[in-house]
């Protein structure tokens, strides 16, 4: 108990992902190793085509690597089948996407309840957990609004509520501020930092904006499917809670 290995949440070794496009083989990831400690907040940066989306998909158990090993919270996920991956996604991982990816015809509350349906939480408890999650992102007064009745920043907060409602070990955010104005973007980053600091949720951001990456405590740079840089941020930029 409490040994260093318990502190390692993500242990990816030598991940290789090869896409076949006709006869040509494209190497999207060419041997990426990454270790992330529990409670870390790191940003993955890289130009488009650098392999950061592929890495995120594999880390998020949406995809499996062609070669390499990946342990998430000690679970070897590299060799799992689709349904086992779905199980891991539903319990260990929360996703936040650039374009929010909310169900357009469901209310904020129903959107947040969605992961709980698939992990078999009974309706009454589901509602209570979803309400608590929406409260945590400051949307307790918007629970019956549909996505098109909410601003971009509010939609992304619903998405974050959905990501944390299953108490995941890790949140994977793919360009979470990409579709937001800078003020809303700052609010979202503040929420991430708070979740990281108060609940110890590990957060991995994928971004190409340096300003956003500076909110993390560690930045990993990818280029051409390889890690080219991995360094801590000396003084992470902290958002002062909006008054």
């Amino acid at each position: 108990m409490g040994g260093p290995s318990d502190q390692i949440l993500i242990d990816a070794r030598d991940l290789v992902k090869i896409y076949r496009m006709g006869v040509i083989q494209v190497c999207a990831l060419c041997g990426v190793s990454l270790q992330v400690q529990r409670g870390e907040m790191l940003a993955i940066m890289g130009a488009s085509g650098s392999g950061k989306s592929t890495l995120l998909n594999i880390l998020g158990c949406l995809d499996t690597p062609t070669r390499g090993e990946y342990y998430l919270d000690g679970i070897p996920v590299a060799t799992m089948d689709d349904d086992q991956l779905a199980y891991v996604r539903g319990r260990k991982i929360g996703f936040v996407f650039q374009n929010f990816n909310l169900l357009p015809r469901a209310t904020a509350l129903e959107n947040v309840e969605l992961p709980l349906i698939y992990s078999g939480v009974p309706p009454r408890r589901r509602r209570a957990l979803a309400l608590a999650a929406l409260e945590a992102v400051g949307l307790a007064d918007r629970i019956h609004h549909r996505p098109n009745e909410l601003s971009g920043g509010q939609q992304q907060r619903v998405a974050i509520a959905r990501a944390i409602v299953n108490q995941p070990a890790i949140i994977l955010a793919d360009e979470p501020t990409g579709n937001l104005d800078s003020r809303s973007g700052e609010e979202i980053m503040a929420i991430f930092q708070r979740l990281n600091a108060e609940r110890g949720i590990t957060i991995i951001l994928v971004t190409h904006e340096h300003d956003i990456a500076r909110h993390a405590r560690r930045i990993v740079r990818l280029a051409d499917g390889r890690v080219v840089d991995d360094h801590p941020v000396s003084s992470p930029f902290h958002v002062v809670a909006a008054s």
């Binding site: 998020g60 779905a86 539903g90 169900l103």
Partner: peptide, 8 residues
């Protein structure tokens, strides 16, 4: 979306 949040 449903699959991402854990639907088998």
């Amino acid at each position: 979306i449903r699959k991402a949040v854990g639907a088998r």
